[in-house]
Design a protein around this nucleic acid. Structure first.
Lengths: 261, 261
DNA sequence: GTAGTGAGCG
DNA sequence: CGCTCACTAC
């Protein structure tokens, strides 16, 4: 089974590229982030016409996540509060979480807040959001030994995940507090699928639109699959497909594909 | 000699279509309207690389005219005040007029104000603008017997120039006052090149983007070539090329080509 | 419906 | 840089 994460930066703008890619890469589950569209306007039919099932949680202009699955998913839910009813409903105003189960694997598709700048209000929100995510995953782990969390984490855990033109410690997406918050989550029992197969640096999944970052390969690896041990064992490959980033009018992110046997 | 008028509705958005058309139709002079770009940002090189000379008068966001000529033009000037220095400079704030001479023919490329709605302030401006245009042409006629005025006139003179789903008299671009203002200009000594060759209706140069007007052929003939007698005699054809309007992301106008022997 | 602008975001 | 929105124009 192939599970893909791809921040498409507007599904309406990127629809043709996503459909072309999916036609050539008929993966099992495609996890999209930053769809930037309300559910009523999500372009479902191009996916259903390819034989996929579509599960979405979107809003106007910002955020938005989607699960596109060849087989129907079960136990689909959007947001934190579906799993953690005690939470304030405000935690689900931003559409950043959707989950479903396929073949006994719970897939959690995430769009982690960007955080803007270290110390900003949005930064503090990002850190709080990650503590809620930890609680959410902790709950899911009670009933699901096989969990794949994937998405745009907006965090690079190690310096080899970032080009060397940047001082990680002082940069959003690489600060101590962000990395620690993510490590606290992984300590629940998740491992980075990509690092099972690739130990060297220089592999990135996002390049800033500005400063010709892609041409100069000034990238970051911030799109991840984190697997519980039973799945990590079964992981057969984890590949970043750089090609979509080379197209004209690309997303700033490119797809990452994990294959689980 | 072939002289073309084409309201391109943004030369930056339409550049590829215009260049493709010009490559396949290597006309002598291409008169563009609604270029919607300041002179510094006009895409000159695609035209110069085809061997054309470029003369422009543009502004930000609105209006803008250009003369694209295979041979260099002489006596090029933009605006009314270059010819009528007594006018208030405000008359040239909107970039709607450019003229130049080739082979003894003075070409006047116009983007007549749209007028918005009958009775509006913009409507009154359109009518006043047409009286200034009359004065401008009257002056030019003193020294040039061979004049071709062409462009987007935003006026359909006869009911056969408009599809029949509209009540002309009450419609902007067809009101009595607009038609009379244009007739007052033509009485200086200009004749409609298109009507030398085609007497029947149903030939249009503009279709509203809205209401699927092109598919239903609900068009207007508002892009014209008006010729002084010496040129009218020499006119060999006047053709509306509907094909560019059929492309994806077209201008709402399509080119009109007059051939002068 | 399809251009343009400017602001907000990342 | 490239996406959103809300606005304006035609």
């Amino acid at each position: 089974m192939k599970i893909v994460t791809w921040n498409v930066n507007s599904i309406r703008t990127r629809l043709e590229q996503v459909i072309n890619w999916l036609s050539e890469n008929p993966v099992d589950v495609l996890c999209l982030q930053e769809t930037k569209v309300i559910d009523a306007d999500f372009p479902r039919s191009p996916f259903t016409e390819l034989g996929y099932h579509v599960y979405i949680s979107g809003q106007k202009a910002y955020n938005g996540v989607a699960l596109i699955s060849r087989q129907p998913l079960t136990e689909v839910s959007a947001g934190f509060t579906a799993i953690l009813p005690h939470l304030e409903p405000e935690w689900d105003e931003q559409k950043r979480v959707i989950t479903g189960v396929i073949d006994g694997i719970r897939i959690v598709n995430l769009y982690v807040p960007n955080g803007s700048a270290i110390g900003s209000e949005k930064y503090e929100f990002k850190l709080r959001w990650l503590t809620v995510l930890r609680e959410y995953l902790q709950y899911l782990l009670k009933s699901h030994p096989a969990i794949c969390i994937c998405g745009d984490f907006n965090i690079a855990l190690e310096s080899i995940d970032i080009h060397d033109k940047v001082n990680p410690e002082n940069h959003i997406m690489a600060s101590q507090a962000e990395r620690q918050a993510l490590r606290d989550i992984l300590e629940l029992g998740f491992a980075d699928a990509f690092r099972k197969f690739t130990t060297e640096g220089g592999h990135y999944s996002w390049w800033d639109y500005r400063t010709a970052a892609f041409r100069r390969n000034l990238g970051w690896r911030i799109d991840h699959h984190y697997l519980t041990p039973v799945l990590y064992e079964r992981a057969k490959s984890c590949i970043i497909d750089v090609n979509p980033r080379k197209l004209t009018q690309p997303s700033d992110h490119t797809p990452v594909i994990v294959e689980i046997e």
